[in-house]
Each structure stands twice: as structure tokens, then as C-alpha cells.
């Protein structure tokens, strides 16, 4: 009973906030609706018992990625009228994308319920004693270790690429050497003198 109420609550919130993401006029509001939909998707994950994925969704997407989105969007200077003008032009393309996604979901579910994936699952079911994290870790670091490491390398290359593209060496920048600053003592910087009257200070 509570499961059912919770499922419909989360599902309705995901769909509504997803729709409001593309319908709201202000881009910051769009990002906020997107965050709400991420959060409710995490709720759905908890309902099917994938608590680890749910927590990762909140930590990574809501806690980091969406903050960066918000960070960028908040500082953009956007002409709302111009943004709305493109809506009709992009509508067919958007509908096409939505159709492709729908077809993929239908195909995926069809293959799952009829194909060899589910059979493989039945042949080697996940041990229900294991917690989420242990089960995922066990697969990720044994069977899929090379794919996992390859994904890590792809991300590393992407990061280095982004740094190379945006980094430029600028002249005339004054950097601070913290170790040098900490080594500095009062006697290096100041000096006590007994100044005679009527003479200038020697600097």
C-alpha cells in the first residue's frame, strides 16, 4: 500500500517536473525542475531496491552536476524572446528524439522479457544476501574490470582535452609561493632604527 502510494507520488513528480523543465520560461527554473526530477528518480530507484544507485544519483547528479549547471545558467545573460523563437523550429527534431527513445525503451523491455538476457539472469541470479554495493563491486572489479578501466581512461582523456583546449599561458601573472610566504619572518621585513632628528630615513 505505502509502496504503491510512494511509486505514484515519485512517478507523477518525475513526469511533471520533466515536463516543466522544458516548459518553464526561465532557464534557472528549468534547471531546478530538472533537479527535482533527478531527486524523484532516485526515489523510484530506492523503491526497486537499488539504494546504492539512488544515492549515487543524488550525490553525483543533484549534488555536483546540477550545481555546475545552475552555476553556469545563473550567470548567463539570455535573451528569452530569442530563445522562445526557436521552439517551433526544433519541435520536429525533439519529437523525433522522443520517438527514438520510446522505441528503444519498448525494444529493450521486449528483449528483456523474451531474450537471452533474462535467461542469463535466471541461470546466474544475483545473490539476495549481498548488499547492492557488494554485488556491483563484485561485478565491476572482476568481470567488467577492463571496461571499467577503459571508461576511466576515456574520462581522463576528456579531462586532459578540456584543459588543453581552455588553458592559455598568460604573461605577467603574479603567483604566490605559499612556502616562501610562510618562511618569511619579522626580521626579514622590518628593522628597528634609532633615527636622528632632522635627517631623512634611509630606505
Amino acid at each position: 500500500m505505502i509502496h504503491v502510494i510512494a511509486f505514484y507520488l515519485f512517478a507523477i513528480m518525475v513526469v511533471c517536473s520533466g515536463a516543466l523543465t522544458i516548459l518553464s520560461r526561465n532557464p534557472v527554473h528549468s534547471v531546478l525542475w530538472l533537479i527535482l526530477s533527478f531527486f524523484n528518480a532516485a526515489g523510484l530507484m530506492i523503491l526497486i531496491g537499488a539504494e546504492f544507485i539512488a544515492m549515487l544519483l543524488v550525490i553525483v547528479y543533484v549534488g555536483a552536476v546540477a550545481v555546475l549547471f545552475l552555476f553556469v545558467v545563473m550567470m548567463l545573460d539570455i535573451d528569452f524572446a530569442e530563445l522562445r523563437a526557436g521552439f517551433v523550429d526544433y519541435l520536429p527534431f525533439g519529437l523525433l528524439l522522443a520517438l527514438v527513445l520510446l522505441a528503444e525503451i519498448v525494444l529493450g523491455i521486449g528483449l528483456w522479457s523474451a531474450g537471452p538476457i533474462e535467461l542469463a539472469q535466471r541461470a546466474a541470479p544475483v545473490n539476495p544476501e549481498l548488499s547492492n554495493i557488494q554485488a556491483i563491486g563484485g561485478l565491476l572489479y572482476t568481470r567488467y574490470i577492463f571496461l571499467f578501466e577503459a571508461a576511466g581512461i576515456v574520462l581522463l582523456v576528456a579531462m586532459i582535452g578540456a584543459i588543453v583546449l581552455t588553458h592559455r599561458a598568460r604573461g605577467g601573472v603574479k603567483g604566490q609561493n605559499v612556502a616562501k610566504q610562510n618562511r618569511r619572518r619579522p626580521q626579514d621585513a622590518t628593522r628597528n632604527i634609532n633615527q636622528p632628528v632632522g635627517q631623512g630615513v634611509e630606505l
Partner: peptide
């Protein structure tokens, strides 16, 4: 099970 991750989230 994921108490610490919950706090982080």
C-alpha cells in the same frame, strides 16, 4: 545499508 552515502547525498 548506505547510511554514510545518505548523509553525503
Amino acid at each position: 545499508n548506505v547510511g554514510l552515502l545518505y548523509i553525503l547525498a
